[in-house]
Amino acid sequence: MQKKFKIEVDCANCAAKIEQAIQKLPGVNSASVSFMAQKMVLDAEDDKFDEVLKAAVKAAKRVEPDFEIEL
């Protein structure tokens, strides 16, 4: 399952670090974080999507505590 989310990230470097952190999570097929568009695309296994999304937000907040996502 692939979903798009509107996010708030402060810089391109943080977006790249967040993307790398999310891609390493178990259950993630792919992830894309765009600073310019302020969007995140997450592709994960259907049956574990909510779990993976929570882990992705947690990983993003470790990189940038001000990270926000609209669910």
Rank of each mutant, 00 (worst) to 15 (best):
K3M: 08
K4D: 15
K4F: 12
K4L: 13
K6F: 13
K6C: 12
E8G: 15
E8I: 12
V9E: 01
D10K: 15
D10C: 13
D10I: 15
C11F: 01
C11T: 11
C11G: 02
A12Q: 07
N13M: 11
A15E: 04
A16D: 00
I18R: 03
Q20L: 13
Q20I: 11
I22N: 02
I22L: 04
Q23L: 09
Q23G: 04
L25I: 06
P26K: 01
G27Q: 04
V28G: 03
N29F: 03
S30W: 06
S30N: 04
A31S: 10
S32H: 13
V33A: 05
S34I: 04
S34E: 10
F35P: 06
F35D: 13
M36G: 10
A37D: 15
A37Q: 15
A37P: 05
Q38N: 12
M40F: 03
M40T: 09
M40S: 05
L42N: 06
D43P: 08
E45S: 14
D46T: 14
D46R: 10
D47W: 02
D47C: 01
F49E: 05
V52R: 02
L53W: 10
L53S: 03
L53V: 09
K54T: 13
A55F: 01
A55G: 00
A55K: 07
A55C: 02
V57L: 09
V57K: 09
K58D: 11
A59K: 02
A60F: 04
A60M: 06
A60H: 05
R62L: 11
R62W: 08
R62E: 12
R62S: 11
R62I: 07
D66Y: 10
E68I: 11
E70F: 14
